[in-house]
Structures are given as C-alpha cells and as structure tokens.
Design a protein around this nucleic acid. Sequence first.
DNA 1: GAGTGGTCTAGACCACGTC
DNA 2: ACGTGGTCTAGACCACTCG
Lengths: 239, 239
Amino acid sequence: MAIKKDASKNIKEVLRDQINGKLLLPLQKLPSERELSELFSITRISVKSALDSLEIEGLIYREDRRGWFVSPPRVKYNPLSRCHFHQMISEQERIAETQLLGVKSMMAPSSIATILALSELTPIHVLERLRYIDGRAVLFVENCLISEFFPDILSENLAQSLTTLYEKKYGFKNSRSHFDFIPTSAPEHVAHALNIRPGQQILKICRVNYNQHHQIIDCEFEYWRPDAVIISIDNRESF
Amino acid sequence: MAIKKDASKNIKEVLRDQINGKLLLPLQKLPSERELSELFSITRISVKSALDSLEIEGLIYREDRRGWFVSPPRVKYNPLSRCHFHQMISEQERIAETQLLGVKSMMAPSSIATILALSELTPIHVLERLRYIDGRAVLFVENCLISEFFPDILSENLAQSLTTLYEKKYGFKNSRSHFDFIPTSAPEHVAHALNIRPGQQILKICRVNYNQHHQIIDCEFEYWRPDAVIISIDNRESF
DNA sequence: GAGTGGTCTAGACCACGTC
DNA sequence: ACGTGGTCTAGACCACTCG
C-alpha cells in the first residue's frame, strides 16, 4: 500500500539493491527507460529522474542513445605519485588503453597563456588523447606543450607516456607540479569524446608542470568521468 | 526564427551571459521557474532541465523551495597545507563561520572501524559541524574521533579548529594524513544541512589523520557543495 | 526499420518557506 | 495564504544506434 508513495524512491532503492547485491554486474545494461516505466508503473520522466540521481551517485552511467549501464568500481588515482597512467591502472588489475585523438599547433590563447605564465605570443602544441579503462572511455586529456621546449615531438608516438618521453628525449625531469581539481560540467568536445551528454558533471583537473630548471614546460587538462575515479593522496609522500 | 530551436540551449546561454556579464550578481535570486518558463515560452520542465545543467556547471545553485541563486566565486582549498579553515577563508577575503550541529558518542560502526583500522569494538565521538562562507552553508563536516585519545574533549568549544585543540590540549601533532576525493551524491542528512536536494552531486573528502607516533587518531568526512570549491595542490609543498 | 534515449508540451497536486 | 520548487501524469516527436 505504501508502494505508490514516492515512486522514484522505490525504483532507486530496487536498482541500488540489485547493483549492490551483484544481480546487476558492472558494464551490464539496464532495461530500457520505457520498460522500467512499465515495470514500476511510473512515467518515463520519473524513471529518468531516478536514473539521473543514481548516475550522480556513481552507480550507473549512460551511453548516448544506447542505454544505461552499471558502473565498474572506481580506480584510485594518486596525482602526486610519479606513476604512469598505464602502470597505475594495471597495478589495480584493470586494463588501460590510450588513443591519440589529434594534435594541433597554434598560438597560445589567453586562457592558456595565463596558466603557462606566458607574456608574449607563444606557439604551443595541443594534444588530445582519450584514455580507456576496461574498454570504457573514462578520461579525456588535453596537453598544452610550449613548442620551443619540445622540438620535433610531433614525430614521436604520442599515445605513450608523455612524462617518459619528456625525460628520454629532452632530459626533462619534473621538479614540481600544481593541480587544481574542479567539479564542473563537460564542455562539448569532451562530452562527445567520453560519450556523455554535454553539460553533464565531470571532474576537471588542471595540472601545470615544471622541469628541473623550475620552468613551466606544459600544462594538462584532465576530464574524468566522475564515477570512474577516487583521487587518493597521502601527504607523507612527497614524490 | 531560430528561436524555437532547442529552447533549453537558448535560456542557458542567456542566463550564462547575464551571470558572466555581472548583470546577475553572486547570491542574487533568479526569476522563478514559472516566470522563466513564460519569459522563454517553454515549459517548466524545460526550464528545470536548463537550470539543472547550469547548476552542474557551478554557475547557479538552488535552495529548497526558495529559489535559484547565482553562485559566488569558488574558494581555493589546499588540503595539504596546515592552514585552518577560518584562516584559509579569510586569506581569500571571504567570511567563514562554523556551527556545531551535534555530538554523539557510540561504538564505531564497521564502515568507520575499517577506515580507522580498528579491530575491536571501540568507542568513538562523532562531531557534526556545518561551515559557512559569506553566510552560505557550503561544507558539512563529520569528525570521528577515537575516544580514548581525547578524554574530556566534549567539554571544549567544538566550533573552533580541531587541529589546534588536538595540539594544545593533547599535544598531538599531525604526522601524516590520507585523503580520498570522491565525486558522488549527498546522503540525506548532509543534503538537509546544506539545504540541497538529497541525491544531488557533491564532493566528498575522506581524511584520515595520524599523530606524531604514527597512530590513527581520527578521521573526517567533508561534503562540499561542488560549486563552492577548487581543490588546489602543489606537490612541492610537503608541509 | 526498430529500439533507444533526448527533448518537449500542458497541465496537475504536494511540501515547504515566507510572510 | 501565497509563492516556491519537487514531483508527477500521459502523452508526442526527434536524433541517433544497431542489426
């Protein structure tokens, strides 16, 4: 008799139970919104609102016009460790892939010039890469390199670790990085690459890197699916 | 003529422009959803969806059944600095307040026992506090203290800095902290205190503190309004 | 072409905040 | 008492994915 009361709460609890109880497994598809609305005798708008809320919680995610799926466990990410993405992921027994989306060379726009502390017109390279965990696109990365520090870098394999490339090819060692973590929404090109809605919530990380001579050499914008990651930091570790 | 095309995009752009152009100022109230739906000739559901999206972006926020407001600028928060909340906020020329919501003493439930690395039934104190910036509730904090380390702490003023109290009253110095940052949704009691919807997105920070003898003495759960903060970290600083 | 989610209309009642 | 957002019904068409 209490069934009709707050229908969206009901469907949320049922789905949460099914996921926590492993009746629905990670990456598994949920029934369609129309099916759910019949199963629970509520409108599709109410179904949607319940799914939205479970999405924010990090339990499920959507793929545009393909359906809703159960989120895999979050990956731990320690930005202060010098660990590469692929190494970090495989240490957690997950599978990492990196895809190079494109490279542009341009003059630094003012927003990026500010971050890189550039006072004049300066050419930069912009790399766009997409990272996958267990086959799911979870991280969109944009690297902005001050071109003069990296002659001929475009002829290298840019799907590998940039840190390693910086060191091996240019002898750069990271002496310092600055990080900003910002909960915000996905810009259009990011949303498209991650297969999420434009405007959907995301975790944005802005990183600025210094070489051993304390020069800023590049910055990086990371856009994480918010259900895919836990940022994990220990203040004892300084490396 | 292109007005009817994607109405929600239109209202979003207009509001964004008004906010960025300072025609709408921080903390200022937006017109009601019904007014907006008339102004833009769209349904209230479409208005809602546009506002939801601007909320995720961090431009506006809602107060339950009171309306929508323009978000003030984000505060920078460096968890690795030893800076107190009040000091940190006032350095940014904002006004900080702390309100003690309540204190409970109990046996550590298993979820917290795990975090505190407790193997037996152990009494803890749980403090709930609410922090304000410029009069707006932005941070809900739950501290779980292992009782035996803190005899008689309940007789102290608990709206002040706990770190200071730990040091002055018990001689504890922080030797290490561990942080987890998790984009997720607000639990019911948190949502209520922050005056947001249960299930709304939030930035959760779990912190574990060690004293100078490398013992875990307490942990802390911070729940930040996601539009209120930028986490800012420099890996050069180890203090 | 069939199925999916994305978006929308045009209403309605409820719960809560404010006065 | 009134205004607000919260939630809901019962449909509709569109854009995209997939087989």
